[in-house]
Design a protein around this nucleic acid. Sequence first.
RNA 1: GCUGGCGUAGCUCAGCUGGUAGAGCAUCUGAUUUGUAAUCAGAGGGUCACAGGUUCAAGUCCUGUCGCCAGCUCCA
Length: 655
Amino acid sequence: MADNIKVKLPDGSIKELPKGSTALDVANSISPRLGQAALVAKIKPSSNGNEFRLVDLTAPLAEDVELRILTEKDPESLEVFRHSSAHLLAAAVLELFPETKLGHGPPTDSGFFYDFYREQPFTPDDLAAIEKKMAELAQQDIPYRREMLSRDQTLADAQQHGDFMKCHFIEQFVQPGEQASFYKTGKFVDFCRGPHIPSTGRIKAFKLLTLAGAYWLGDAKNKQLQRIYGTSFYSKKELDAYLHQMEEAKKRDHRVIGKQLDLFSIQELAGPGLIFWHPKGGTIRKLMEDWMREEYIRRGYSLVYTPHILRVETWKTSGHEGYYAKNMYPPMEMDDAFYRVKPMNCPGHILIYKSDLRSYRDLPQRYGELGTVYRYELSGVMHGLLRVRGFTQDDAHIFCTPQQIEDEIVGCMDFALAVLKTYGFDQFQVELSNWDPKDRANYAGTDEQWDLAMRSLESALKRSNIEYKLIPGEAAFYGPKIDVKLVDAIGRLWQLSTIQFDFTLPQRFELEYVGEDGARHQPLMVHRALYGSIERFFGVLIEHYAGAFPAWLSPTQVAIVPITDRHVGYAASVESMLKDVGIRSHLDARSEKMNAKIREHAMQKVPFILVIGDKEAETGKVNVRTRGKEKTEDMSAQDFVAHLKHLVDTKATSL
RNA sequence: GCUGGCGUAGCUCAGCUGGUAGAGCAUCUGAUUUGUAAUCAGAGGGUCACAGGUUCAAGUCCUGUCGCCAGCUCCA
C-alpha cells in the first residue's frame, strides 16, 4: 500500500501505519501505557542519514523510519523535558509581565534557564509569582504545538514587537526562503527548534532557583539580560532529592569547612582575595609543599627562588607590561626605578637561565619554585580559595632541546598523575588545547614549533593512557597546552594542573644554547604547574575530603583523651611516644567530660581519638576510636603508633 | 567590572508596620573527676559593615562606599 509507511522498532519488529501517523500513534499501538510514558521520539529516516535525531511525538512520519520511543528512562528525554520546562517558565513570565522580551532558554546540566530583557528587574517575590503561574499552566496541561511559519513574516512580526533577540536568532538560524519553526503553548509562542514533550502537564516537579545577570550574546559590551535559573524533574521525589543533595554539597563547601576547622580566613581589613593560612591550614600547606619539593628533587628539578618584585623593564621584555598590565598591580617607584609585583614566575626563571651560557649538554634545565604571585582579578570573581588575588604556584619551567621535548612532557604528565593519585582524585578531565585554525595570525611561534609541541603533548597523553578532549581554539596565543580540571562540591570545574608551551618568551629574552654543531639555538620552553595554585588545590582538597583529611595531612592526627586527671600521666607518656615518631597529637587534659571531648575532636575530624582510663593505664594499651568507624578498638600503644606511622608513610587516603 | 540578593556578639541566627539590641554555641571564672558525640552555675562580650541623609527618634527608611553570596564576563 503506497499510503502506508514502515516503522522499524528497536526490537527489530516492523509496524505498518498510514503515512502521517505519529510516534505517539506507534507508542499507543504498542501499549497505551507506553503512549502515556512517552516523552519524545528518535527517528532515523530510511532515505537519508545514518543518525537518529530527536523529534516531537506528535510529528507526522512521512516515510519509512527506524523509531525509538523515549521515556523517563532515557537520559536524552530529561534535556527535552527541561527545555520544555524553560518554555513553561517563559510562558509564565509573559503572562505576568507581557512587556518582557525573550532571549533563549536552554536546558543545562542540572536544570534550565531562560534569558529575559525587561527594564525593571525581577524581584524574589516575582520569582515566587512566576513559579505559581508555572504551576497553573502545568495544571492546565497545555500541549506544545510545532508550527512552521514564514521567515519574513515572523521576522517582521518580531521586529514590530521590538523582540530584538528573537530577530537575531531567526536571522541567524533560518536561511532566507526557509520556514521558521515555532512552538505554541496556549497563548505563548516561541521561536524554537524543539523538540518538546507533548504537554505542560508532564512537568510535575520544578523549582526556580536563582536570578542572575547575563550579557546578551555573552558579550559584556551588550545589554545585560535577566536570567532565571530553575530545575525540573519527573517527580517531586527526585526534585526533593536534588535539593537535598545541593544542601549536602553546601556543607562540603571549603569556605564553610575552612571556618569550622579553622584552616584559613580572608579578612576585609586586609583585602579581598588574599588568604590568611591559620595554624591548621598552615600545617597542611607545609605538608603539601614538603611532598611537592621532595618530588621535584626526585624528578630532577632544581629548586629556585626569585624576587617578588622586578623592574618594569623585565615586564616590558617579557611582554606582560603590554598584554597583561590590566591584571598586574601598579608600579612602585624606588630610587628612580619602577618595580612591579610579579603576576607570574616565568621571567624570573628565565633570568636564571640567561645568567650563563648554556650548552646542549646542560639541558634540560628544570627550574621549580613555589612562587607567590599577585594578579588583579575583577571584584566579582573572587571565590574563597578557588579564585584569589594572591596565590602560590608550584611553578616550574623546563628549557630543553626539540629532541628532548617529548620525554619532558611525558615526565610532566607522569608527575601530574602522581599528584592526582596521591590525593586520591579519581574524577578529573584532561583537555588538550590547540590553536584555532581560522585565526592563525594571532598565534606566536612557527608552524613547525606548533606541530612539534602538539605531537609531543598528544603522544605524552597517549603514552600515559589518559583520555582527553581535544579543544581547538583554546590554546593561549603563545603555545598549546594540557589542562587538568577537577570538580568542586557543587559541580563547578576548576583548573589545577597545566602544562603549557611558550614560543614567545625564549624569543623575547633571546634565550639560546650552544648545540652539538657549535651554533646557537633557541631552547623550547614549557611552563607547568601541577597543584596549579596551592590555595586553589587546598580548596578543592577540603571539598574532596569534606574536611576529613587523610592521616598524613591531618593537622592533628591523634587526640588523646584521659578520662580523669589521674590518667594524664600515662596519657602524656603515650603522647611522647607519638611525638618521638613525628606524629602530631594533642593531649586534651581539660576538666571536661570525656563525651564532650570526644564530640569536639570528632567534629574537628581528627582521624584518631585515644581514650585512656584505668584499663588502658594498667595494661599499657590505648582505646582507639577511628574517624568514621562505629566500633572502638583496644590495642597496645606500640601497635597503634606503628599502624598510624604506616598510614602516614604510605600517604594512605583512607584510615 | 555588570545584574540581583545580603552585611546584627568570635560563630549560627532572631529583632513585626522606625521608639537607641536578644538567643544558642564559643570565651572567661568557679564548681565537678567523669568509660565513647554536649556537666552545672555565674560573668564578660555589639560605634547593628562604614560614611552621610530623612526624622522628635534609625538595626529598621534613603544615598554613597566597602565587603560577602549567586550568576554573567574575564581568566596570559
